[in-house]
Amino acid sequence: MKSTILAAASLAALVSAHGAITQPPPRLPGAAMAAACGQAAVDAVEADGTIPLENITPETNDCNLFLCRGATFDDNQDLVQTFSAGDVIDMEAVLPIPHEGPANVSIVDTATNTVIGDPLIEFESYADENLPELPANNTAFSVTFPRLPAGACTVAGECVLQWFWFGTGAQQTYESCVDFVVG
Rank of each mutant, 00 (worst) to 15 (best):
Thr4Asn: 15
Leu6Asp: 08
Ala12Thr: 03
Ala13Asn: 13
Ser16Thr: 12
Ser16His: 12
Gly19Leu: 02
Ile21Gln: 04
Arg27Val: 06
Pro29Cys: 06
Gly30Glu: 08
Met33Ser: 01
Ala35Asp: 05
Gly38Gln: 05
Ala44Thr: 15
Ala44Asp: 07
Val45Gln: 14
Asp48Tyr: 06
Thr50Ser: 15
Leu53Ala: 10
Ile56Gln: 07
Pro58Trp: 05
Pro58Ala: 06
Thr60Tyr: 06
Phe66Val: 12
Phe66Gly: 11
Ala71Ile: 06
Ala71Phe: 04
Asp74Thr: 06
Asp75Met: 00
Asp78Ala: 14
Phe83Thr: 00
Ala85Pro: 04
Val88Gln: 15
Asp90Gly: 13
Asp90Pro: 04
Pro96Tyr: 01
Gly101Asp: 02
Pro102Lys: 02
Ser106Lys: 06
Val108Phe: 01
Val108Glu: 08
Thr110Arg: 14
Ala111Leu: 07
Thr114His: 13
Gly117Ile: 08
Gly117Thr: 12
Asp118Ala: 14
Ile121His: 11
Glu122Pro: 00
Glu122Ser: 15
Glu124Lys: 13
Tyr126Thr: 06
Asn130Ala: 13
Asn130Glu: 10
Asn130Leu: 06
Glu133Gly: 01
Pro135Met: 02
Asn138Thr: 09
Leu148Phe: 07
Val155Leu: 12
Ala156Arg: 06
Ala156Ser: 13
Ala156Gln: 02
Gly157Ala: 09
Glu158Trp: 00
Glu158Tyr: 01
Cys159Leu: 03
Val160Trp: 01
Gln162Tyr: 02
Trp163His: 10
Trp165Tyr: 05
Phe166Thr: 12
Gly169Trp: 09
Ala170Thr: 00
Gln172Val: 10
Phe180Val: 03
Val181Cys: 00
